[in-house]
């Protein structure tokens, strides 16, 4: 049962090697999509090429469905997956500023790495700027500390926020993704350059368009939350080691290794 690391399948150092491997594929895929090129990246903001939205939304949908199906099948304990806590105000402000930084600098943090290694000098400058920006934040931290934790809502998910089950949220996200694809392709056809936009086969697109809502609908009916409730340690936890409650003893898998470590820093 996953996450393998949290069940003591391997230690921290192996985790770092794994990070290198996962990062390799991450960077490889970003470069394949053309995200080492700031003109390709920023084209989304001038309505010419929505590759950024397509890649992001598709990755989110695939991973979301994967996590929920894995959870239903008992392959992963979502309670042990690090869930990013919500601090609504700094996230809103940070999102806006990051967006401005994106269109101004031409990159987001990870794509700047991919661009820098493919020889873009401006990406290297962007990275230097990012490091300086992080230090500026650290220097200003005493002033910003209160805002940094403003609107703390804990590890809250959309299902709780909207008051519907994860399955229905999944269906909603699938439908939203499909409508977004449909809409941006209409916009692309109008403003974009068909020569540079990658094409896809029509039947494959039809199948995918049918598959997504179907997978979402199955989840909505199966209701992953009910499966979660039946499981031990199903509560989403953050930053504190797993509580050794009575429920934990029912877990057939290995107990966490002595080197067990909860993520002590934020996501990105």
């Amino acid at each position: 049962m996953g996450p393998l690391y949290k069940f003591g399948w391997f230690d921290f150092n192996y985790g770092l090697e794994l990070a290198g491997l996962i990062g390799f594929f991450f960077g490889f895929l970003l470069e394949r999509a053309g995200f080492g090129n700031p003109r390709k990246l920023t084209a989304i903001f001038y309505l010419r090429d929505f590759a950024v939205l397509k890649v992001m939304f598709t990755a989110i949908v695939v991973c979301m469905l994967g996590l929920l199906y894995f959870s239903v099948l008992g392959w992963i304990d979502l309670g042990r997956v690090y869930l990013l806590p919500t601090y609504i105000w700094p996230q809103i402000a940070g999102g806006f500023v990051l967006g401005v930084g994106f269109v101004m600098g031409g990159y987001c943090p990870t794509t700047s790495v991919v661009a820098a290694v493919s020889g873009k000098l401006d990406a290297l400058i962007f990275i230097i700027g990012m490091m300086a920006g992080s230090l500026v934040f650290a220097e200003m931290f005493p002033v910003l500390e209160r805002f940094h934790t403003a609107g703390s809502m804990g590890p809250v998910r959309l299902p709780e926020a909207l008051g519907i089950s994860s399955g229905w949220v999944a269906l909603l996200v699938c439908t939203m993704a499909l409508s977004a694809y449909w809409f941006v392709e209409k916009v692309e056809r109008r403003f974009g350059n068909a020569e540079t936009l990658p094409a896809g086969s029509r039947p494959a697109r039809r199948w995918a368009a049918a598959l997504l809502p179907a997978l979402g609908l199955i989840l909505a009916v199966v209701n992953p939350d009910r499966v979660l409730e039946k499981k031990p340690a199903a509560r989403i936890e953050i930053r504190q080691p797993p509580r050794r409650t009575v429920d934990d003893r029912r877990m057939p898998e290995k107990t966490p290794s002595p080197t067990f470590e909860i993520v002590e820093d934020e996501g990105c």
């Binding site: 990013l84 919500t86 996230q91 990051l98 930084g101 700027g129 500026v136 934040f137 998910r157």
Partner: peptide
């Protein structure tokens, strides 16, 4: 752009991959 992004990523506890991509697939609000 780098300065703004570096600052904003710390403020929001993540960037497009660490916060948006990762968190959104977990359905974090």
């Amino acid at each position: 752009g780098g300065l703004l992004s570096g600052f904003a990523a710390r403020l929001a506890r993540g960037c497009t991959s660490g916060q948006a991509l990762t968190g959104a697939s977990e359905l974090a609000l």
